[in-house]
């Protein structure tokens, strides 16, 4: 899993089977200091509660589909939690 920031949502009426009813979020990947890194990805909302600008953690690859009701769906990123706090060890 990695940290991400929800930038917005994607509405797509024509989607692959199994994705109807799945919220799609635009997520900006963050580095471990919560700074933007890399290009935004489109992630399925596995907790169905992530709002705009929220700090989330998301999972990639095969496990992303495992975050949804229907697990045999073409999803490669999924938000699996809303982050309350990141406590970094002061080195």
């Amino acid at each position: 899993m990695q940290l991400g920031r929800v930038l917005g949502t994607v509405v797509a009426s024509v989607k692959a089977d199994g994705l109807d009813g799945v919220r799609l979020l635009i997520v900006q990947p963050l580095d471990r200091h919560q700074q933007p890194r890399g290009r935004p990805v489109i992630a399925a909302d596995g907790v169905a509660m992530a709002g705009p600008d929220e700090l989330v953690h998301y999972v990639s690859a095969r496990e992303a589909a495992q975050a949804l009701e229907e697990t045999f769906v073409p999803v490669d990123h999924a938000v699996v939690g809303i982050v309350d706090a990141v406590e970094e060890l002061s080195q």
């Binding site: 940290l3 471990r32 699996v80 309350d84 060890l89």
Partner: peptide, 25 residues
């Protein structure tokens, strides 16, 4: 290397009651 922890209450059920560690590879 463990460099921190991530606290999350609203999350996928499989993660509940589990400690999330922030790790530098």
């Amino acid at each position: 290397r463990v460099v921190g922890t991530v606290v999350s209450t609203i999350q996928a059920e499989i993660l509940d009651d589990r400690k999330l560690l922030l790790c530098d590879t």
